[in-house]
Amino acid sequence: MAVVKSPLTDEVRNAVGQALQGSLIDLIDLSLTAKQAHWNVTGRTFKSVHEQLDELTATARTASDSVAERAVMIGVNPDGRVQTIAHETSLPTLEPGWLPEDKVITSIVDALAGTISRFRERIDAVEADQVTQDLLITVTGQLEEQHWMFSVQR
């Protein structure tokens, strides 16, 4: 079995690994939450919200892959198993069943706000690894764009 030798010190690698794992959990759950809302949203603006939820899902899935691959690059095993996500997520759970567009928008805005806040904390926490910091800054920018696009629909 090949083992990745990280250019980072063990202390930095561990801190960065924790930040990446937390980011991975947020992004995977965000993509699942957005897809669940996508399937169940109802209302007059259904089509635009439905399509924007797909954009959010794609953004979160692409970002989660980048975050997981960064973890592997520094010798940290990413854990995206469903049990891990369910146990460690910080995102609120959507209500079951059909969801009126206003509830979907509010839920997604809140989920994004919390995720962005945690990403900003992680950006500070990974200061010793500017490559990871740059990745988290980029993802945060993408999440903030989605937050803005949903927020203006309130």
Rank of each mutant, 00 (worst) to 15 (best):
E11K: 08
V12Q: 06
V12S: 08
V16N: 02
G17P: 11
G17F: 12
L20K: 00
L20Y: 02
I25G: 00
L27K: 01
I28G: 02
D29L: 09
D29S: 05
L30F: 04
S31P: 09
A34M: 03
K35E: 15
K35S: 08
A37D: 06
A37S: 04
H38L: 07
W39C: 03
W39G: 00
R44E: 13
T45W: 12
F46C: 01
K47M: 15
E51N: 07
D54S: 02
A58R: 07
R61S: 14
A63P: 04
S66D: 12
R70G: 01
A71P: 03
V72Y: 10
M73R: 12
M73D: 15
G75T: 02
V76I: 13
P78N: 01
P78M: 04
R81A: 14
R81S: 15
E88V: 11
T89F: 09
T93K: 15
E95A: 12
L99Q: 12
V104C: 02
I105C: 00
I105W: 06
T106P: 08
A111K: 05
G114Y: 07
S117A: 15
R118N: 07
F119H: 10
I123V: 13
A128Y: 07
Q130A: 13
T132M: 03
Q133D: 07
T138Y: 13
V139M: 09
L143T: 01
Q146P: 07
H147Q: 10
H147M: 10
W148C: 06
M149C: 02
S151V: 02
V152P: 04
